[in-house]
């Protein structure tokens, strides 16, 4: 099976074709937002970039660079002030595999920096618009699966249904990154023999389906090959769904499959989030931002496998370019994990 993706110079395949504008430091966020607003590019603003320890700011810079390297990004423009720890030119240089440019407002003056930013970003958007989607095997797809706003239905309906979809994707050679959550670890663990993996997976979930786990990765690592991986071992602060979803994109994941009982509204700045809700009441209330209703599983009206097939089909459609509900709602969230306290 195939999906239609954007082939990047570095060999990665995007399912979206976004140009982003990144702040080096929180002080510069208003300029970043104005460039993005004037061009239609996506602003990436945050609260870090200065006043951090050497080790912490290096990690922040590393994370921003890996985020910009996500295959869904066509080009990245970096906005700096000039006196901060994360230097605009250094960050732009660290981003590999795609066009980058930068500006420092202290050098150019704010109006001139704004003008340069708008001009450069418009150029990137023009170049990106020339790219056409091409047929791509599913082994180029990296899916993050995550749950949040979980409730009594998550372990019964939405998580196992996503697990069934994950099984189908892995059968086709795809890759699935599984984050920590509750319930269903027994299904994952039954094919695992490595004790370290078992310990790390105590709290993992049904969202990985029945596929044997290939290994445990830190958020800093890219999956070494296709299959199911558990992502753990973080050294940043931030436990919200949006932080975790944002940090998963550093591994090159192009799509997030998110199960929610309460109806989490989250969307991601550069990646589609496909939302699956197993709660019939909350699905109806929030259907404008829920992509898949998994609640029929509870009443025996649909099987886990049937909903899993629907999710898998929806994933391919989204990979081909169909917008998810949160994209239509305009939710473009970016919350970077905060590195604070890694000082000796």
């Amino acid at each position: 099976m195939h999906f239609m993706g954007y082939h990047r110079d570095d060999g990665q395949i995007g399912v979206r074709n976004h140009v982003i504008v990144i702040s080096t430091v929180s002080c510069i966020n208003p300029v970043t937002e104005q460039i993005a607003k004037a061009t239609g590019a996506i602003p990436i603003t945050h609260g870090c970039g200065c006043g951090q320890t050497e080790e912490d700011y290096q990690k922040t810079q590393w994370s921003l660079a890996r985020y910009a390297e996500n295959p869904n990004v066509a080009g990245a423009f970096v906005v700096g002030l000039g006196c901060e720890q994360i230097d605009a030119e250094r960050l732009a240089d660290e981003i590999r595999g795609k066009p980058t440019a930068f500006v420092r407002t202290s050098e150019e003056g704010e109006n001139a920096a704004l003008s340069k930013g708008i001009r450069d970003v418009r150029g990137m958007i023009l170049s990106a618009s020339k790219l056409r989607r091409e047929e791509t095997p599913l082994n180029k797809l990296i899916l993050s699966v995550q749950c949040g706003g979980s409730d009594t239905t998550s372990g019964l309906a939405s998580n196992p249904a996503v697990g069934a979809a994950a099984d189908l994707l892995i059968e086709e050679g795809g890759t699935v990154l599984l984050e920590v959550a509750a319930f269903g670890e027994h299904r994952l663990l039954k094919n695992v023999t490595d004790r370290k993996v078992i310990e790390a997976l105590w709290a993992a979930t049904d969202k990985g389906g029945n596929t044997p786990l290939k290994g445990v990765l830190s958020y800093k690592e890219k999956p070494p090959g296709p299959g199911l991986y558990h992502v753990t071992g973080k050294d940043y602060i931030g436990f919200t769904d949006v932080t975790e979803a944002t940090m998963r994109l550093l591994s090159g994941s192009q799509i997030n499959c998110f199960t929610t009982g309460c109806g989490q509204p989250m969307g991601l700045a550069i990646a589609p989030v496909l939302k699956i809700n197993g709660n019939p009441i909350n699905y109806e209330k929030n259907r404008e931002n829920m992509d898949i209703n998994a609640s029929k599983i509870l009443y025996g009206e649909e099987t886990i496998e049937e909903v899993g097939k629907r999710i898998f089909t929806a994933l391919i459609e989204v990979a081909n370019g169909k917008l998810t509900k949160s994209e239509i709602m305009g939710h473009r969230d970016f919350v970077l994990g905060i590195f604070a306290g890694t000082q000796k």
Binding site: T152, L156, L298, Y299, G300
Partner: peptide, 18 residues
């Protein structure tokens, strides 16, 4: 997993979810 209109249960469970 068995379901019957009012509840969900997996084999071997000693509780059901309404």
């Amino acid at each position: 997993m068995s379901t019957w209109k009012w509840f969900v249960k997996f084999p071997g469970d000693n509780v059901v979810t309404l």
